[in-house]
Design a protein around this nucleic acid. Structure first.
Length: 296
DNA sequence: AACCAGGGAGCGT
DNA sequence: ACGCTCCATGGT
């Protein structure tokens, strides 16, 4: 049968907006027709519909495993949430407020590179840097007639051939040497990103942290957002703040103690819990700021 | 205009 | 182990 370029990916309890805008992936662009992005070199536009996600492709595709694998539409989010600690009302509130927020499964190199660029940057800026990087050094993908051109995220090999000055043209500042060195480590085989996925969590974290510019937080982001380690738990300023507020009466908690609390408290899907807490605190914080501004 | 951003390296204690 | 400063850049 003739395949069409528009399909429905059936799923439920999937908040596409929250999922693609929450700061786990930086390559998605929203317009009035939905979210446009590139997955494994394929242009795709996604939009929420009643029974799932409407998928618009540039080229026909014999199956959508590459897409359902990325979006993790087969994950039963209720089963995930059911593993959260029962007596944690803060987490329950966060889940309720962020219903439908999901974790996606990104390409390891793209995720690693993006989060190397993320340090001390706001999410909007990270998106800008990533876009510049794709447009300058990525590869144009096939797009439907009339659509704006899009580029895949540059491979490690593509970036390894560049200079630090080339990268700085994308406004990444002091992160440029980190990204360049990482690209060259991956290209030379000094680090094997594929092998990281089969390691134990602690070993995988150590492996990623061998890279200059990759500390615990960035390593955990890659382990959670690309490799799908379910207990990886990135702790950034927002998460530190919300954990302190919810579980330590707002006290400043030392890193070691915080790490032990996380491992004991959140259970086998701690990474999802982290994302709910992160998204929740950012939503409430942004709301507070805009309210302050309108009241003045 | 000043402040701060999904951090990390390189120090010193 | 913790705490501090610096790093480059731009958005609110």
């Amino acid at each position: 049968m003739a395949s069409r370029d528009e399909i429905i990916l059936t799923t439920s309890e999937y908040d596409l907006d929250a999922t693609l805008a929450c700061g786990q992936a930086f390559g998605w662009e929203r317009d009035s027709d939905g979210w446009t992005g590139v997955i494994q070199g394929r242009w795709v536009r996604l939009a929420s519909v009643a029974d799932g996600i409407k998928v618009h492709l540039a080229e026909t595709s014999r199956d959508l495993v590459w897409l359902s694998g990325y979006l993790r539409t087969n994950v039963n989010i209720r089963e995930v949430v059911a593993t959260f600690p029962k007596d944690d009302e803060h987490l329950r509130d966060a889940v309720r407020m962020c219903a439908g927020l999901r974790l996606v499964r990104q390409d390891p190199w793209e995720c690693l590179a993006s989060f190397i660029l993320s340090s001390t940057k706001q999410i909007v800026q990270i998106r800008q840097i990533v876009r510049a990087l794709c447009e300058r050094y990525g590869t144009a993908v096939v797009i439907p007639r009339g659509e704006a051109s899009r580029f895949s995220f540059p491979t490690a090999t593509q970036l390894a051939a560049l200079s630090e000055t080339d990268l700085r043209a994308c406004k990444m500042g002091f992160r440029a040497p980190y990204l360049l060195a990482a690209a060259r480590c991956v290209t030379s085989g000094e680090i094997n990103l594929e092998s990281v996925g089969s390691m134990k969590l602690s070993q995988a974290r150590e492996e990623l942290m061998k890279l200059d510019g990759v500390g615990e937080k960035i390593a955990d982001c890659v382990l959670l957002f690309a490799y799908g380690f379910p207990t990886a738990f990135p702790v950034d300023v927002w998460v530190r703040r919300v954990l302190s507020q919810f579980y330590f009466r707002g006290r400043n908690v030392k890193p070691d103690r915080l790490r032990r609390f996380i491992e004991r408290h959140f259970g086998p899907n701690a990474g999802y819990a982290q994302q709910y807490l992160f998204h929740h605190v950012r939503l409430t914080s942004v709301k507070k700021v805009s309210r302050e501004q309108t009241e003045i």
